[in-house]
Amino acid sequence: MSDTVAVVLLLALTAYAVLGGADFGAGFWDLIAGGPERGARPRELIEHSIGPVWEANHVWLIFIFVVSWTAFPEAYASIMLTLFVPLTLAALGIVLRGASFAFRKSVVTLRSRRGFGAAFAASSVLVPYCMGAVAGGIASGRVPAGGQAGDPVDSWLNPTSLVTGLLALTAVAYLAAVYLVWEARGDDDAELTEYFRRRAVVSAVVVAVVGVVGLVVLHGDAPYVFDGITGRALPVVVLGFLCGTGALVLLARDATRGARALAVLAVAGLVVAWGVAQWPYLLPETLTVSSAAAPSGTLQALFVTIGLALVIVLPGFLLLFALAQKRLLPGEGVPDVADRTMHGSAD
């Protein structure tokens, strides 16, 4: 039973990486888009593309927290105690990012928009890095079992965390670039399509390089996970790699829809590979999933909520997603008479 919960947890992590990740990655491209004039057009596309769905994406993270503290309370306590610093930074980054994005959409003067924009972009980079570093700390066995605190510094400032942090950052940037190519194509905007296509290719190469360096690092620093990745999880890794490469091929051929699907699979492959590689451990080599699990009553309650999620949340989510994909959601709700008058009175 605890295995099922762990699988659900891994799937939720994957969903967060793929859906939330694209939002963070878009923030990365926003950050490096250049000055207000040069970056104006890509920024507009970015803002428009993460409009409606971004709100829902945070909930994945909350879901992950809630399921972990309910199903695996001791492991959760260990992780939170040990990785206090990067998790706190991530939390602060999320506040800053969410708020500044919401406000950027609602304020109108250029100066205040630029301020919010910068806060949004910078925190978009901070959060995925911290999350990746947390994963690295766990994967390399730096979090002790039993609700104990490990080393407060080395647990996230270590070779594995550095690599996984960078991997998270580059992977979400890659994903976002592929999404944005698709968005730009939908707008029939050849210039922006090309703009993000170039970035997608470059970031894909960077992900691959970081991945290879990562393997070397894991070999020395996180042997259990290294063995997993090169053994049990190897098919997943290969599949992910093929998908990532395939996405680039399709991008070059202008088949953006297929490219997007493959890019999603590639990033999902990364997360799943990590999970498979450290199976059956929750905290590698000290705590297994089954020994960390909460009593069965709790797990049954979690199954009920997961069932409810399938019945209630999933259809709504798919509907929202379908609407967004069919571009049936206007960028900012119903245009108000106020907005319209302002357009009318321009110049």
């Binding site: 507009e44 109108v108 250029l110 960028g331 900012e332 907005d339 302002m342 357009h343 321009a346 110049d347």
Partner: peptide, 11 residues
């Protein structure tokens, strides 16, 4: 659907 925000300058 309108694209983009209301024009900065007008407000």
């Amino acid at each position: 659907p309108p694209r983009g925000e209301p024009d900065e300058e007008t407000v």
